[in-house]
């Protein structure tokens, strides 16, 4: 290598960067009028799971409120870029929503710099360090996991049910535990198999985990997965077993699914936007779950018998009254 060509080549590259720089430094102005909403979706908005559910809620709010709001969003944000994304969103919006607990640390860091902007964290937890302009909405996945476990135990013919979770983070592990508790609540002798793939989006591993559970007798599977759900579907379809959906009630669209839990990620996005649009938004920590109604959290058995429905209602009531206690998540 000789030095000369390199230098030329590189000065050229530097020049290219410089030229782009010349046009910069425009001053942004905040538009008056509709409520501006900025949403950070850490994963893919079409992941069939958490992120997609959040994005659906955003679209629902847009449809409902129409010209009263304008929405900007960004998906697939890595940790190294998260703070910059939040600052960019906060600089130009009235309300900033982080879809997922993984945004919490960055939101806590950015929020104090933008005291006039409202921040909401979906899947946030009750943290004493919470700044004054942030609200955290707790999904309470473990609670509905308990009900899903009960439903699975009612639907299982073999007396064995299974759960596949993605990352081993508290919300996901607690949901798995409570799913097992729920199943045992209905049928104390039930066999419960749980498994974590370490990745919400790994199709192959989710499939293998499900096949392994099927081989041990499980015939109803619950999950907290995103794209990885496709693997579980394939395994269940091959072996003639059934799946319980996790986020949205889609009864009737696919015979593979015998029941759905509703986990209101999208509902919370909608809630934050509606509250802010109506001027009633306040910084708070709010557990959603069953307490906020069927759009926030619910359990549906698609062709459920009246007895099954009654039993589910009873369990939900006991959860609400505190007769059955579950882990936070």
């Amino acid at each position: 290598m000789n030095h000369f060509d390199r230098r030329l080549f590189l000065t050229g590259t530097a020049g290219a960067a410089g030229l782009v720089m010349l046009g910069g430094l425009a001053v942004p102005a905040r538009a008056a009028g509709p409520l501006t909403v900025g949403v950070l979706i850490p994963g893919s908005k079409s992941d069939k799971g958490w992120m997609e559910s959040g994005f659906d809620g955003l679209q629902a709010a847009e449809k409902k409120l129409g010209a009263k709001i304008t929405v900007k969003y960004i998906e697939n944000v890595k940790f190294g870029d998260m703070e910059q994304v939040l600052v960019a969103l906060a600089g130009k919006n009235d309300l900033v929503i982080g879809v997922g607990g993984q945004t919490q640390a960055s939101v806590f860091k950015v929020a104090p710099r933008f005291p006039k902007v409202k921040f909401a964290i979906i899947g946030g937890n009750a943290d004493p360090k919470k700044p004054d302009n942030v609200s955290g909405y707790d999904v309470r996945q473990a609670e509905i996991g308990f009900v899903a476990g009960a439903a699975a135990a009612m639907l299982s013919k073999n007396g064995a049910v299974s759960y596949v979770g993605g990352l081993e983070i508290p919300a996901i592990k607690n949901t798995g535990k409570e799913f097992g508790n729920g199943a045992r609540y209905v049928n104390p002798k039930i066999k419960y198999i749980e498994n974590y793939t370490g990745d919400f989006d790994d199709v192959a591993k989710a499939k293998e985990a499900t096949l392994a559970a099927i081989a041990q007798g499980a015939d109803v599977h619950y999950h907290i997965l995103n794209l990885g759900l496709r693997g579980m579907e394939q395994a269940a379809r091959e072996k003639g077993t059934h799946v319980i959906g996790s986020y949205t009630d889609r009864c009737g669209t696919d015979p593979l699914y015998v029941a759905y839990s509703v986990t209101g990620v999208g509902f919370q996005v909608e809630y934050a936007i509606e509250q802010a649009a109506a001027g009633t938004w306040k910084p708070e920590f709010k557990p959603f779950g069953l307490a906020m109604g069927p759009k926030s959290s619910d359990m549906v058995i698609c062709k459920g018998t009246p007895e099954q429905k009654a039993k589910l209602e009873e369990i939900k009531k006991d959860l609400l009254s505190g007769k059955i206690k579950v882990l936070d998540a």
Partner: peptide, 12 residues
């Protein structure tokens, strides 16, 4: 192609 792409998994 099945395991290669987690976006679409073509082998049922």
């Amino acid at each position: 192609s099945s395991a290669a792409s987690s976006r679409i998994a073509p082998c049922p």
